[in-house]
Design a protein around this nucleic acid. Sequence first.
DNA 1: TTCTGCTCTGCTCATATGAGCGACGCTGCG
DNA 2: CGCAGCGTCGCTCATATGAGCAGAGCAGAA
Lengths: 313, 313
Amino acid sequence: MVRAARHYYVDDMSKMQTADALGVSRFKVARLLEGARELGIVTITVDDAGVPVPELADALAAHLGLSRAVVVEAHGAQAEVRHEVGAAAAALLGSTLRQGEVLGLAWGRTLTGMSHSMPPLPRVDVVQLTGALGTDLEASPVEVVRRVALRSGGSAQPIFAPLVLDDPRTADALRRQTDVAGALRMFDHLTTAVVAVGSWDPPNSQLLTALSQEDRQAMHEAGVRAEVAAILVSDTGEVVSPEFARRCISIGVDQLRRTPRIVAAAAGADKARAVTAIARAGLCTELVTDRALAEAVLSLDGVDPAVAERGTA
Amino acid sequence: MVRAARHYYVDDMSKMQTADALGVSRFKVARLLEGARELGIVTITVDDAGVPVPELADALAAHLGLSRAVVVEAHGAQAEVRHEVGAAAAALLGSTLRQGEVLGLAWGRTLTGMSHSMPPLPRVDVVQLTGALGTDLEASPVEVVRRVALRSGGSAQPIFAPLVLDDPRTADALRRQTDVAGALRMFDHLTTAVVAVGSWDPPNSQLLTALSQEDRQAMHEAGVRAEVAAILVSDTGEVVSPEFARRCISIGVDQLRRTPRIVAAAAGADKARAVTAIARAGLCTELVTDRALAEAVLSLDGVDPAVAERGTA
DNA sequence: TTCTGCTCTGCTCATATGAGCGACGCTGCG
DNA sequence: CGCAGCGTCGCTCATATGAGCAGAGCAGAA
């Protein structure tokens, strides 16, 4: 049975060839294969994770006024969804980045996933857009930059500094450090930026873990709904809490807005409002998401996602 | 593509039916399915783990003088091999146990695996053959007994006592405890016992972790090669170190030998000599193993396993 | 515009495949 | 010993399938 299954399914032989190879009748081969499937020796799985859904993507791009959107199928735990979205973002960069670009990378679990799935890239300069948060080396923005630069062969410009400081004074001092300043200067020359979308309401952002209870309370009252690269945005797309930005080592709103191409990656339906807010704020030109999030965004304002999608291949 | 793959592979429709269902030509269906396989949407795996190898089993039974042997394919890490062997032992019990039997269970990682794969059983009384070792509740003999009894609906006779004590006196005292004594009395009425084989040279037995350095040294010098239910056996099949048995809460050699049916489960080629020793000692009548161990046992004394096996289905 | 190359589609025809059937061999029973 | 019951095997024939081909649509170049 196992040998028959190997021949037929792995080596793609016909049942007649398999029969000849094993010295049995083709009928017996058919019965062996049938048995092998029943016994679980042969398992056939149809897994659409990572498959793009162009219809939803087009509808999403139109809805949010983006130049492009990528929507992929993803199921299972949040971590798996992030992994698929990250892989899709990696593939998008791989097929669109051109040699000589200056690529800015923010940070988040989705972008960590992206860095793990990154295909070989043309030679680009990679710049870290934000300081670090937390102590997990594997998930740090420095590591994301390192991995992506490794795939490209271009220069890497990391920022060895915390993302959030206790007061603006310390942040200013850090910004004047030679290495940090060098990275910040490159923010004006970015051709492509990649950011992760964090949601503040419902709360789903790693930035939240770094804030004091008072900070959170104040921001909540200020109407913060979403976050990219530590830039806080309200439901209407306005940037709030600029005094918070002064405490952050991160790209500024204006610098990010001036970047010609901003790819936002977001995973999970609970980020629907956050994604909408970011798009309204003009803080992304392209979006990579999973199906559930895309559908949630489209249905937020009464757009029926079923209309957008027809005849998934 | 995904829908075509679902229809064809999951629902077992023909390509023509699939074509009709999707409203496309059968040729397009063929091309979609081809693409789906190339893109990894459809994965076909041939996994022979757990498939029995009757030729080897017969050779092994003849070689060791057993009434029956079961040999299954198993690959990968030790834990996976143990899991497959455990599942095979569970299936064997499921198809051979009769109502009213008294089933004794020893303990080990393979038997823990067995207890997780146990099919529904006829009503039997389950008795724990040894005390407990270590503190992992999930892997304790009590848990094995509990799980198996649950599948059978019969009574469970656990032993809440350590397997190894520091001195014979304490062990004797424990054996006089009402609950313990009740279990020990049932050892004389066992109809089937299931034991795991531990190897002492090379060292691969959980019992080893419970012994002092002096104990090990003494036993090594006494020529201990194998162990079942804390019974220590030399290469020639003789039981050694009976004074150790006095410190153990466990079934005795004579009681075990009198049991009509003793199923031994063993996983991993490094237990070849141990298995041979146990069989020589008359401490098993049936054996459940993986292919690698079976081949190792057969080739120990120059028997070529390739001769035994011919034409695996 | 027209041409050219490219991809995608569905066709024909030879071949592979599955459903259903009768023959064979094995096992247990009278 | 003969026979019924059961499972397995390979056959026939209708049908499904794949290889290769030709036409349609489409994008880019002249």
